[in-house]
Amino acid sequence: MLAVQVLINALVLGCLYACIAIGFSLVWGVLNVINLIHGSFIVLGAYLAWGAYQWAGISPWYALVVAAPVFFVLGYLLQRLLLNRVITAPVLVTLTLTFGLDLILNNAMIYYFKADYRKLTLNPPTGSISLFDVVVPVDRLIATASALALTGLLYLLLRRSKVGRAIVAVRLDRDAAVLMGVDVKSIYAIAFGLGAALAGCAGVLMALIFPISPLTSSAYLGKAFVVCVLGGLGSVSGALAGGLLLALVEGIGSTLIGPAHATTLSFVLLIVFLVVRPQGLLGRKGFE
């Protein structure tokens, strides 16, 4: 029974990891920007959910609807006003810029919210479902379903909409896309905005599950990074595959060789992937 429980835990956690990583993967894949502010966006999203519930009694599900446009605008403006100016510079420049922005946002959150840990506790609590001794927490299930829905929406957007096709076109070949009349700067801003919106929504969902503090942003960023390398960049299904693989390795590793080594195991896997399959599980060659 322990094996089934560990497997279920890993499946649910895998979807949460995918949710954390998908916006990061989109920005990295399309803009070739390693967006170090991603973790802080997630934390800001979590504060939004916490604040809305604490002060106005607004359920996190409604906060999700607010978070998406708010973060989209934030991301869009950030890209339009700042990142687009250095987007053609070597990757180190954008890395440094997002690093700086992350320091500002993170420290601003420490200043306003303090570094104390908070918890969004729903009243009444959502509880857990148990079936033959296997227990699944309802909030994680809902977060998983929402994560899958968000992932599905993004997939549809990229596949079916005109903007989505333009994003994919820019990702495949920037110069050709320019020649075809795509406004690359605006597509970059939309892609970054989408990445930020996904981070904000992920934050709202994570607020139900993890303690909230500006100090947790690096943990989210670290997971997003590993998930992207494992799953492959820029693709929706890649983030899901990467998240599931990471959660499975951590869960099984933690049960078999102890929780202290689970992280080590996931980073060993990361190195193996970088050497053997740098494009990740589902990534295409040329986008590693």
Binding site: L2, Q5, V6, N9, A10, L13, F210, S218, A219, Y220, G222, K223, A247, E250, G251, I252, S254, T255, P259, A260, A262, T263, T264
Partner: peptide
């Protein structure tokens, strides 16, 4: 490990 984000496998055990 420091910075562990999920303890579900450990707690199940």
């Amino acid at each position: 490990a420091i910075n562990t984000l999920d303890h579900s496998a450990t707690l199940s055990q």
